[in-house]
Design a protein around this nucleic acid. Structure first.
Lengths: 333, 333
DNA sequence: TTGAATTACTAAAACGTTTTATTATATTTA
DNA sequence: TAAATATAATAAAACGTTTTAGTAATTCAA
């Protein structure tokens, strides 16, 4: 059973394909199609359940009413929550979202951009990685709206929405210091993306500002995509080797691994040992005791991204690029 | 800057479009194109960075090398993990996945099916809801492979992959009973999908088999999509109103809400009060004490789904439908 | 030496739309 | 009443591919 085409509808209604197309696209009035014909065709469309073939439409028009979302890893709750919010908001405006994960793999990211490009997506939302600058530049050359989020690629002239990781990280360390902590560790990852670097810079700056010596041995850089058991080993190692009274984790999954270590070595979070996580996670609030964290305002980020995209899509001229930095919040629990 | 088309390549190589197409699609030998021409054209393609337009390709061939994944809610870690696994495995076989959430909304689910259909996806992986039987039947009529997962729609003749929720739930309750529990509650949701009903049936059957009276007041059915504050209120209410010594939560997010209640009312999980969750969640293991749960073998489910799909896609004839039930595991912590 | 088979390649149709240009008729204007 | 305009509709091109049904030249078989 093949799907109906506009041809079938035209045949049934005894009018031309053109007429049907005008009616489908709401151009009937403008193209002075008579009310009688409009009604007849619409009724036939409803009765037959005809749905235009979007592929053909896309081939002809070059657009798709689809926004492509490229993220690091959909199974990370930060990304899956953002994805869900973006999806909701876009859907209400008549846009569909398709998303896929890069796993921080340059090749896969490029593949995805090409996939989306060859599917005529109207706009791109990308949490980028180093190495895909050229591919994104190609999109910009074709005048496709691109919003980077979570991480910026400063060499590209495009839109960016992200949290102020430097300030958030600074604030977290500052709060440790004000609690009297002196041996403050940072557990982060070893990928070279701006938002991760910022977290490190904030950490360092706070220590320097408060005249606490920076000990690089207190900074643990976990290889990205390493199996969790190894991460746990490394963190355990750090906790054993160094005298530490506070630790900031640079991502939520690192914090989760860290909490597992604490449980295994039976170390408590208390007045002698403080922990702050990054990107909220249900386990943080539920933990005994609850774990403080740096919270990115997901709703606001998603909202801002969609607003930027829709503005660009509805504007005939290229709008000026915007770099929107949204403050992250330190949630002390 | 417009993208290159096959026409441009043909022009550059001074051959016909047909020849280029044959070469791109690896049919050059079969169609007896000379090695010299093949080399020349391939070189031009590489040098120019030409990428075939998938939309046009799709319009012509009717397929897309894309598999559509329709799930309840991408921000639920059960689904986002499954999505990630499916994505990985499909990617290795040259298929891309596009996914979207239904939010248990019939209309949105239908929209998504139509979206995917009009995008010529080659196959569908759906965690379905009541009310979209007809839409799925239409896909089956068009001979598109459809794999239902997580929940079945028994009236449809198609493939299904899911865990044995009845047995898992039975087992959980049985373990409560063997610990001597008598007042066993079930916190579940009020949606009418098979996998949720099974969890309830397993609960009831275990009680009956062990001659424990079934008290419907110990079964709390939370409205789906209700704000979490209300859920927490309802659970708190249940815990206050009834004498309970064990509780099974039918989903991971209900368990999370339940754990929050326990924290709020300062009730401990101990020998007097046992909890089992559903679908693992990082917070369960990290919780003090760790929370037992019913674990679905995500990897195996994803693997099975992809295997079924690929089999169907590579087979010319329609393969017999398969209903694969994979045991879920009770993890006692 | 001729007809058949093989080799090397291509023209054109088809996929299902949108849109431009055009036609034919009816109505308005001067 | 003739010219201009408005109304109502359509034919055909275009989007970028794949694929069918060729053609022409060469090689092979008997």
């Amino acid at each position: 059973m093949k799907a109906l085409s506009i041809k079938d509808i035209a045949l049934k209604a005894n009018v031309s394909i053109t007429t049907v197309s005008f009616i489908i696209n709401g151009k009937a009035k403008e193209k002075s199609i008579s009310d009688a014909v409009i009604k007849k065709v619409q009724q036939i469309i409803i009765d037959s359940g005809y749905k235009p073939n979007q592929i053909a439409r896309s081939l002809r028009t070059g657009n798709s009413h689809i926004i492509g979302l490229i993220i690091e890893d959909i199974s990370n709750s930060f990304f899956s929550r953002i994805a869900r919010l973006i999806e909701d908001k876009a859907y209400k405006k008549g846009y569909k979202i398709i998303y896929s994960s890069t796993e921080n793999n340059v090749e896969k990211a490029q593949d995805l951009i090409n996939l989306f490009k060859s599917r005529n997506v109207d706009a791109y939302i990308i949490s980028p990685i180093k190495g895909i600058e050229e591919d994104i530049q190609l999109l910009l050359n074709e005048n496709k709206p691109v919003i980077l989020f979570d991480r910026n690629l400063p060499e590209l002239n495009t839109n960016y929405v992200g949290a102020n990781h430097f300030a958030a990280s600074y604030q977290a360390i500052e709060s440790f210091i004000k609690q009297g902590k002196k041996n403050i560790a940072l557990v982060t990852i070893d990928i070279d993306v701006q938002q991760i670097i910022e977290r490190y810079e904030g950490y360092k700056k706070a220590l320097i500002d408060y005249a606490i010596p920076v000990d690089e041995e207190l900074v643990l850089k976990i290889p990205f995509n390493q199996p969790e058991v190894d991460t746990i080993k490394q963190i355990k190692q750090l906790f054993k080797a160094k005298k530490i009274d506070a630790v900031l984790f640079a991502t939520n999954y690192l914090a989760i691994s860290g909490l597992k270590v604490l449980k295994q070595i039976n170390k408590k979070i208390d007045e002698h040992f403080a922990v702050i996580g990054y990107d909220d996670h249900e386990a943080f609030e539920l933990h005994t005791p609850s774990v403080s964290t740096i919270q990115q305002p997901l709703e606001e980020i998603a909202e801002t991204i969609i607003k930027l995209i829709l503005n660009q899509l509805s504007s005939k001229t290229k709008l000026p690029d915007q770099q929107i930095i949204i403050p992250a919040k330190l949630i002390l629990r």
